[in-house]
Design a protein around this nucleic acid. Sequence first.
DNA 1: ATGAAAGCGCTAACAC
DNA 2: GTGTTAGCGCTTTCAT
Lengths: 335, 335
Amino acid sequence: MATSIRDVAKAAGVSVATVSKVLNGYTTVNEQTKEKVLKYVKELQFRPNLAARSLVGRRSMTIGIFLTTGLVHPFFTRILAGMEQALQARGYDLIYLARMSLGKEISLVQHCQSRNVEGVVVFGFQHENADFGELIESGLPAVFIDLDICEGRAGYITSDNREAMERAVAYLADLRHCRLAYIGGIKDSYADLHRLAGFQTGLARAGISYREEYRIAGDFTREAGYLAMQRLLALPEPPTAVLCCSDMSAIGAIEAIREAGLSVPEDISVLGFDDIELAEYIQPALTTIRQDMTTIGRRAVELLDELIVDEKLAPPEVIVPTELVVRQSCGPAKV
Amino acid sequence: MATSIRDVAKAAGVSVATVSKVLNGYTTVNEQTKEKVLKYVKELQFRPNLAARSLVGRRSMTIGIFLTTGLVHPFFTRILAGMEQALQARGYDLIYLARMSLGKEISLVQHCQSRNVEGVVVFGFQHENADFGELIESGLPAVFIDLDICEGRAGYITSDNREAMERAVAYLADLRHCRLAYIGGIKDSYADLHRLAGFQTGLARAGISYREEYRIAGDFTREAGYLAMQRLLALPEPPTAVLCCSDMSAIGAIEAIREAGLSVPEDISVLGFDDIELAEYIQPALTTIRQDMTTIGRRAVELLDELIVDEKLAPPEVIVPTELVVRQSCGPAKV
DNA sequence: ATGAAAGCGCTAACAC
DNA sequence: GTGTTAGCGCTTTCAT
C-alpha cells in the first residue's frame, strides 16, 4: 500500500486534518507543526492520492484532448508541444480518452464526467460525424482549434486564415499574377470559408476579378490537390498561380502540373498552407503560409484553464497571426 | 451534481449494492432486477465515477506515456496511432503526465502513484538525464520502446535492428558495393549497438571486411549525418555506399554528397532507417528500412496490459521485424 | 437474491 | 492552532 495521509499524520504526531491543511496551504497552522509535517511528507515521499482528492470535490487537474480525425493530423505533434508548455505551467495533466467518440454510445462528455475531466481541447477537421451538441450542452469547458464554436462554455482559437490569404494573394499579385486559383479545403468548413473570403478580398484589392471556375473544393489531402489541379489545367484558360488550402494539397497539385509537362514555378506558381515539415524538403521547396501551431496549442490550454477557473468567463475567440514563408514554388508570372 | 449510483438505486427501488453488482457483472443478481437497474442506468445516463472506483481498490484503467525526448520524436504520431488501437480494445485511457520528469523533484513514479496510473510506456532516445532506476525499483509495470530494459516489471519492444542492417548490407552487396560505411546513432545506444552488429555480420557474410574508419558516430539528426558524410568524403578512399541510422541523417548525408559535387545514387548510394513520411518525398526518394511503429505502439500497450494484469509475468522482450523499402537512393556500385 | 454498513484517501466543517 | 468527524461515490463483506 502506498503511504497515505494517515501515515504522515502518525509519523508527525498530528491529525490528518493538520496534514491536509499544510498540504493545501492553509495559513492557520503553526509554523513549527508545518515544518514537522513537511519533513515527514518528504521523508515518507508522500503524494496525495488525486482520486481521493477529486472525489471530495477538489479539482482533478486533468484536461482531455479530443481529435475528430484520429491521430493522423499533421499538426498533432506541434500542437501538443505547445500544449505541453502551458500544461506544465498550470499544473495539468493531459488525458487522451481512447474510448471516447462523439455521438457514439459511450459519449465524450460522459466519459469526461466519469473521469472528472475539467475541460477539453478538441481539434481536427470538420467532420460529418462530429456532433458537438452534447458537448456544448453539457457545459464542459472546451476550446476548439480551427472550428469557430463559441457558445456556452466553449470557445475557440484559430489561425488568421483570412489575413493569411489576403497576404498570399498580394504576394502573388506583386509577382504579376492575375489568374489566381484557389484549391479549397472541405467546402464551407470554417477554415475554408475564411480563406476563401481572404482570397476574394485580396483579389479585389489587387484589382483582379474573382472567377468561380478558379475555385475548386477539396479536402486538404494530396489526392484532392492532384485532382483539383487536373481540373484547373483542363480549363480553356488555366491559372498561372494556385493557392492551396494545405501543403499536402499543394504537393498533389505540383504532381499534376508535372504530369502535364509543366514546371513549378516557371509555368505555374504553387503556394501551400500550413508549413509542415515536408514543405522545406520537397522540390521545389514550398512557399507557404506558416500556421503557428505551437502558439495555438499553448494558448488553447491557457484559454481552457481560464474558462475552467472562471465560471462566468465569456468563451474566448482568439485569432493567431500567420507568416508567409517564401521558398521556391512561386515565381513571377510568365508574360 | 452528476448522477450517482444512489440516484440509480433510488429510481430502481433497490439498494446501491445491487446496482453495483449489476454494473460489475455479478451473477448473483435476479434477472428481472438486473433489467430494471439497467433500464435506469440508461435512462439516467449513469456512468460510475472512476475516481471513486479506483479509490476502493479497483483498477484505474489508466496508463501513462513518457517521452525522454519531449514531444519532437519523429515517430510519435505513428506510435500513438498504434497504441490507440490497443487502448480502445483493452479499455484504457492514456495520460500524458506533463509535470513528470525522470529524476526531477516530482518524479514520474510518484506522480503515477498519485494518479493511480497502472503502468507506463516510455520511449525516446537514450538520454544522459534519463534515470530509470526509480521506475524499475518502484515495480510500476513499464514497457520501453527502443531501450532494452528488462528487469523487474519492465520489459521492452523494439525493431529488429540487427536483422535489418544485415539485410541492408546484403542488398547493397548485391548491388556490388564493397566499400560500405555506417553513420551511426548515439554511440553505444541500444539501437546503435545492434545495428552495428548487423552491419558487421552482414559484411562478414558478404565477404567484405569491416573497416573502422567507415564507422562514424552520430546522433540521428540531419546535422550529424551531414558532418559524418563530410568526414567520410575526406577519406583517401571514400565509401561507395552509406548506411545511415535514421532518415534524417541520410538526408544530411545526401546534402554533403551534393555539396561535394557528387550525386546520389550514381556516385554514392545512401540508405536510410525509419521510413519517415519525408523519405518518400525527397529527391532522390530514399531507400530505407521501415520500422513498423504502428505495430510497436499497439504491441507495447498489449504487453503492458499483460504485465499489469499478471503480477508474476516475466517482463517481455519483443522484437518486431522491419522491411526494406527500395526507392531511388541506392544504385549499383560504380565500376 | 438483496441490503446495511464499513471503508478506500482525502478535505472541510465544526468543536475544542 | 489542532483534532474529530462526516462524507465524496463506489465496492465488498456479511447478514438476512
